[in-house]
Computed example of a mutant assay.
Amino acid sequence: MSGIDIRHPHSLPLPKARKAIEEVAEKLAERFDFEWHWDGDTLHFNRSGVDGRIALSPKDLHVTAKLGFLVAMFKDSIEQEIRRVLDERFN
């Protein structure tokens, strides 16, 4: 099973960072048909072949995802889109 592991620093107050993560989740949901929900300070997202999370801490975000066989073929484009959206919202 292939995976994604991205750490991205941020300097936003936690409520603003949480709002920005929700905006990231909404964009990814539109593009890749994900469903998502919060569990504490971790946003979980999934769809068939993808199980991922974005853990929020005071100084960074940690994005992890397990990709099933078919979705793994698109790993590079998924990871590139995640990085692009994180840069857009957190830089």
Rank of each mutant, 00 (worst) to 15 (best):
M1P: 14
M1E: 14
S2G: 05
S2T: 09
G3R: 09
I4P: 07
I4A: 11
D5I: 15
D5W: 04
D5P: 00
I6V: 11
R7N: 14
R7I: 15
R7G: 12
H8Y: 15
H8C: 10
H8L: 06
H8N: 12
H8I: 10
P9I: 13
P9F: 07
H10S: 11
L12H: 08
L12V: 13
P13V: 09
L14T: 15
L14A: 04
L14R: 13
P15E: 05
P15D: 05
K16F: 11
K16P: 00
K16G: 00
K16L: 15
A17Y: 10
R18G: 07
R18P: 09
K19Y: 06
A20K: 13
A20I: 13
A20M: 13
A20Y: 14
I21N: 05
I21F: 07
I21E: 07
I21M: 11
E23Q: 15
V24M: 12
A25H: 11
E26Q: 15
E26R: 15
E26Y: 13
K27C: 07
K27E: 15
L28V: 07
L28Q: 09
L28W: 12
A29M: 10
R31K: 14
R31P: 09
F32K: 00
F32R: 00
D33F: 06
D33V: 00
E35Y: 06
E35H: 07
E35V: 13
W38R: 03
W38D: 12
D39G: 10
G40F: 03
D41N: 11
T42I: 10
L43T: 08
L43P: 02
H44V: 08
H44C: 05
N46K: 10
N46T: 06
R47I: 04
R47D: 03
G49T: 03
V50E: 01
G52I: 02
R53C: 06
A55G: 04
L56A: 14
L56T: 08
P58K: 06
P58C: 04
D60Y: 07
D60V: 01
H62R: 09
V63W: 04
T64H: 03
A65H: 03
K66Y: 01
K66I: 05
L67M: 01
L67I: 01
L67A: 00
L67Q: 01
G68M: 02
F69D: 00
F69N: 01
V71P: 02
A72E: 02
A72L: 02
M73Q: 06
M73A: 11
D76W: 05
D76C: 02
S77W: 08
S77I: 08
S77F: 07
S77R: 14
S77N: 10
I78Q: 05
I78C: 05
E79C: 05
E79V: 05
Q80H: 13
Q80L: 07
Q80I: 01
I82H: 03
R83L: 12
R84M: 08
V85S: 07
V85M: 04
D87W: 00
E88G: 00
R89N: 12
R89K: 14
F90P: 05
F90Y: 06
F90T: 02
